[in-house]
């Protein structure tokens, strides 16, 4: 029950942020929408039953996002340079890297971070390894150094 109220609260905040109107009609429509969506999600949860929890260390996660942003900028500059060069100097390769994060959520964060950095795309992710397509030898080497995996593993609790 507490979960549902929290969920409805989040939806309500979303409605207010996006609507910006406070007349009874609009607020009423918002209440109806929130109630409808909460009901739908309740029924879908009963049909599915899987529950996902976001168990990360949030402060460390904030730091990680900043670090990831710097990596994204670097990788972007690298790939953009490759795209603008008159001669294409690509050395595409597939690499397999051991997935350091142990939890499901950690591995998903890891896989998404790899894909979010241009120059590396996660092709396959399982319990032991990630299979990554890398655009150049450098981007593959950066991944194989394991810096990102270690940082994601530190977020888990």
């Amino acid at each position: 029950m507490a979960r549902k109220i929290a969920f409805a609260g989040i939806l309500g905040t979303l409605w207010i942020l996006l609507s910006g109107h406070y007349s009874p009609l609009f607020v009423g429509l918002g209440v109806v929408s929130v109630a409808l969506v909460t009901l739908m999600v309740h029924r879908m949860n009963r049909a599915d039953g899987t529950r996902y929890e976001l168990r990360v260390r949030w402060l460390a996660f904030g730091r990680y996002v900043l670090w990831l942003f710097v990596q994204i900028v670097r990788a972007n500059v690298e790939v953009a340079r490759l795209a603008f060069r008159p001669r294409l100097e690509l050395s595409p390769r597939m690499v397999r890297v051991r997935a350091l994060p142990r939890t499901e959520l950690g591995r998903v964060i890891y896989g998404n971070s790899i894909t979010l950095t241009p120059g590396t795309v996660t092709v396959h992710l399982d319990d032991e390894e990630v299979e990554v397509h890398a655009l150049t030898r450098e981007s593959a080497a950066a991944l194989e150094s394991g810096a990102m995996g270690r940082r994601v593993a530190e977020l888990e609790r």
């Binding site: 994204i72 900028v73 972007n76 790939v79 953009a80 795209a83 690509l90 595409p92 894909t115 979010l116 950095t117 241009p118 120059g119 590396t120 795309v121 397509h133 655009l135």
Partner: peptide
């Protein structure tokens, strides 16, 4: 390789 290129527009 084109997938990487698409990522440039869509991220930075």
């Amino acid at each position: 390789t084109r997938l990487h290129a698409a990522g440039v527009t869509e991220t930075l």
